[in-house]
């Protein structure tokens, strides 16, 4: 920002008009939105996978416990959101995972 003469300008659209300006690091690193996929069970909080109660290919009823995720000294029970099948399990018991990771893929 010290020397404004050598700054590379980009086109930045606000509504229909494009403005010549610069972008901030924070803006460039922002998270892009993706629509939630109901068939993906993601970690809503970072933590440790304590127990997985289901196997791939297993049919599971709505509301049944499928795994335990311990995070922030709280034991979170993850339950099946609808009647369906466990397609793929991406995590192992004892694994530490960050927030937003797809843990289990399911289908109706």
């Amino acid at each position: 920002m010290e020397n404004t003469h050598n700054i590379e300008l980009v086109d930045f659209p606000i509504l229909v008009r494009k403005y010549k300006t610069t972008l901030t690091k924070k803006y460039m690193n922002r998270k892009f939105y993706t629509a939630p996929n109901p068939n993906e069970i993601k970690s809503h909080i970072p933590g440790t996978v304590v127990k997985i109660y289901v196997k791939e290919g297993q049919k599971v009823k709505l509301g049944k416990k499928i795994m335990t995720l311990e995070a922030m000294k709280m034991v979170n029970e993850i339950v099946m959101p609808f009647d369906g099948t466990i397609e793929k399990i991406f995590v192992k018991e004892g694994e530490k995972i960050p927030k937003g990771v797809v843990m289990i893929e399911i289908s109706e």
């Binding site: 920002m1 300006t21 610069t22 972008l23």
Partner: peptide
């Protein structure tokens, strides 16, 4: 500041 993000208002 039009030089950055065209001077928009945002959360920050």
């Amino acid at each position: 500041q039009p030089l950055v993000l065209a001077g928009v208002l945002d959360c920050d």
